[in-house]
Amino acid sequence: MDREPMTRPYRVVFALLPHSLALDWAGPAEALRMANQILAANGQPECFQLEFVGPSASMATSVGVQLSGLSPLPVDLATRGPAWVVLVGLPGKTIDVRSEAAQRLNGWLQSLRLATGQLELICVCAGALLAAQAGLLTGKRATTHHHHLDELRNADARCDVVSNRVFVLDPPVYSSAGVTTGIDLILHRIGEVCGPALAARVAQGLVVAQRRGPNDPELSPFLAFRHHLHPALHRVQDAVSERPDEDWNVARMAELAHASPRHLTRLFLEHAGVAPLAYLRQLRLASAQVALRGGASVTRAAQLAGFSSDTQLRRAWQRFGPGGSPRALRPTTD
């Protein structure tokens, strides 16, 4: 049963700078629009009032589309009911906050007085860096895109920077890792305000395969150990990740790499930072987890992932995986 929405809608203020990443704000904005649409179809009042503001009335986005009609940075956020300020990322390896527009936004952010349930901050991707520059993350836990984690640490040494998380909750501050994780975070917030059933309907409308939570890693296990440029190693990893259920061993992997088993092991350790069989085990555990979340029995998940038995899966799960029992992920018993 969905919660009754508040009589007074949440004011959601997207504060944009020139060249703001379009998907960082468009994705969450669409999720909020769809939530309002579902509420209206059920005869309920809309819950979110969207506003787009900035240091200037018009600006280009990251994809070159020109925005116009932006409202000025508001001065009455604390007097008109609950509000969320949404900060989004900018393109580039580092975030330049020296521009006149960024300085104006920074001054406005410094004037905000955040309070849980009243005035809250949502940072998408490198939007956390803008918040940190304004002193809004001091003493708070926060995350950002993995490319900007060190930059965030340098921006505010008193911010507890959390890596490899889809989003982090430390009210009144909420932050997400980057790009599509902003949608995950806003779905979570929709669920908090309007109930999980409505948030699930929004996710379904967005064709989001699986809503992710604050304890989920930013990087998929299937992408782990891939931060290298060695083509032969990528060839092996591609084959193993596509068919983890097959009978893999180091010798077979070495054939794909046109290398000896000993040399392949050296390549894995040097470039991927993991041994070949340990890499295979992590892929199989990830595959089993996907199967279990989809409702498969432990025995079936073990087969699909390439474990010789459900006993082998349970042992690997307890020793190298999330811990506990894989049965806990299943909605029904075996």
Rank of each mutant, 00 (worst) to 15 (best):
G92S: 08
G107C: 06
V86T: 09
A115S: 13
D96E: 14
L90D: 03
I95H: 11
R113V: 11
I95M: 12
P74C: 04
G107N: 10
P91W: 04
R104C: 02
D76E: 13
N106E: 09
V97L: 15
V86P: 08
L77W: 02
R113A: 12
P72C: 02
L109V: 10
L112Q: 08
V85K: 10
P82A: 09
W108T: 07
S71K: 14
W108M: 06
L90K: 13
P91H: 08
K93A: 15
G89S: 14
P91R: 10
A78V: 01
W108G: 04
L105E: 13
P82N: 05
W108S: 05
A83Y: 02
V86Y: 07
I95P: 01
P72W: 01
L105T: 07
G89V: 09
A102D: 06
T94K: 13
A115F: 00
W108L: 05
R98W: 00
A101L: 01
N106M: 02
T116D: 13
Q103H: 03
P82C: 04
D96Y: 08
K93D: 14
S111E: 12
S99M: 05
P74K: 05
R80S: 12
T94D: 10
L105F: 02
I95T: 15
T79F: 01
G89I: 11
L114M: 09
V88F: 01
G92V: 10
L105R: 14
Q110N: 03
A78M: 06
T94F: 03
D76Q: 11
R113E: 13
L90Q: 15
N106C: 08
V88M: 03
A102L: 07
L87E: 06
V85T: 10
L87D: 06
T94Q: 14
T79A: 12
I95V: 15
D76M: 07
R104D: 02
A115P: 00
P82S: 06
A115M: 09
T79L: 05
P82H: 04
L112P: 11
G81E: 05
A78L: 09
R80A: 12
T116V: 11
Q103W: 00
S111G: 13
G92L: 09
P91Q: 04
V75T: 14
G107L: 11
L105I: 06
Q110D: 00
P82G: 05
P74H: 04
Q103A: 11
R104T: 12
Q103M: 09
P82E: 02
P72F: 01
L90R: 15
S99W: 03
Q110W: 01
S99I: 05
G92F: 06
A101Q: 15
Q103Y: 00
A101G: 03
P82V: 02
R98F: 00
P82R: 13
P74L: 03
T94P: 01
W84Y: 15
S99Y: 03
L112K: 11
S99A: 08
Q110L: 02
V97T: 14
A115I: 00
G92N: 08
V85G: 10
A102I: 06
Q110C: 12
L73H: 08
L90F: 02
T116S: 15
L109S: 08
R113K: 14
S99H: 07
L109A: 07
L73E: 05
R104G: 00
W108Q: 05
P74F: 01
V88A: 02
L73G: 07
G89N: 10
T116A: 15
S71W: 01
L90E: 11
A83Q: 04
Q110E: 12
L87Y: 06
